[in-house]
């Protein structure tokens, strides 16, 4: 399908191709081997894990006890639903608000553009403390509400700035011609800019989704009832209670969980991302060659 372009370009010589292949292979192996360890450990018998010091590459037998105990009691299942809700609703809201803001900031004639952009930019450089933020969240009545996981973090300054850069990168002629045709801002934005920005939208959407998916700290501070806790916070209690950070600070008894459960946690928290990733990847990993066919 990409022959058209390939014909014009000489294929690189074999040393170059071999070099590229080798680099990729080494990189991929460096990721795959530990991951095999993670998955193997999650299904290996505890005895073997202890005897091998924590990580197992080749399990002697396979059992799913770690997953069973993880899902026993329904804590993880409920947290999974909370996380899915927060991620889906949060990402949609974030994308809407951020795109509108980024689009406004990308318009060359926008009179308030520069001050607003600086407001956005400097918010990246100064981070407010957790206590004042808590007081604000409390003040607007979001405590103990699931919206506390979405509203305070709805806009990421980084994402807005990146979106704006991509919007500005669109060929000027297109938006200008739309304007000459009498299209208003809403039309230009909805019918011209957004469809041309699928790649960056899926990337920023993914950034937001992953941020929502991984967030735990707001839930820890703002939600007193563990019923509303998202997956990452629930899973964290299995892993974090065990670091030197925590145990040294508080004089509490340590009850660290088995390594198999920790690894199962990792698998459980990655699977949803594994599922949605390919759908989004289509949009940004298309690359030049397939893009060319369309053009």
């Amino acid at each position: 399908m990409s022959q058209k372009i390939v014909q014009g370009v000489p294929m690189p010589g074999w040393p170059m191709r071999a070099f590229k292949g080798l680099v990729l292979l080494v990189f991929c192996a460096a990721v795959i081997i530990p991951f095999v360890g993670v998955i193997s450990t999650s299904v290996a018998p505890n005895k073997q894990i202890n005897e091998s010091g924590g990580l197992v590459l080749f399990p002697k037998s396979v059992n799913f006890a770690a997953y069973e105990s993880l899902f026993a009691g329904g804590v993880v299942t409920r947290a999974l639903f909370v996380s899915i809700f927060v991620t889906v609703v949060g990402t949609l809201l974030s994308l809407t608000v951020s795109c509108l803001l980024a689009y406004a900031l990308s318009r060359p004639g926008f009179s308030a553009g520069r001050p607003i952009l600086l407001v956005v930019l400097f918010s990246m450089l100064f981070s407010p403390g957790i206590i004042p933020t808590y007081l604000v969240v409390k003040g607007v009545g979001l405590l103990d509400s699931i919206w506390a996981l979405i509203v305070p973090t709805m806009v990421s300054a980084f994402n807005v700035i990146v979106l704006r850069a991509f919007f500005m990168n669109l060929p000027n002629e297109i938006t200008e011609s739309a304007r000459i045709d009498g299209a208003g801002e809403l039309k230009t934005f909805g019918y011209i800019v957004l469809p041309l920005s699928k790649a960056v939208l899926s990337v920023i959407g993914l950034f937001y989704a992953v941020a929502y998916w991984n967030a735990f700290f707001s839930a820890l501070l703002y939600l007193n009832d563990s019923k509303l806790w998202p997956l990452q916070l629930v899973l964290r209690t299995y892993v974090i209670n065990d670091t030197q950070l925590g145990s040294a600070e508080l004089g509490t008894e340590l009850l660290p969980p088995q390594a198999s459960i920790q690894m199962a946690i990792l698998v459980v928290s990655i699977v949803p991302i594994l599922i949605i990733y390919p759908f989004l990847q289509r949009h940004f990993a298309k690359g030049v060659l397939t893009g060319a066919v369309k053009g």
Binding site: L105, F126, G129, V136, M154, E185
Partner: peptide, 27 residues
């Protein structure tokens, strides 16, 4: 003249001000 763009920018800017700059006063 830019009222539409201002309207576009409003929700995002308001959120940043409310949850970033207001707590920054706490600094």
């Amino acid at each position: 003249r830019d009222k539409v763009l201002l309207l576009f920018a409003l929700p995002g800017t308001a959120l940043i001000v409310a949850f970033h700059y207001v707590p920054l006063l706490g600094n």
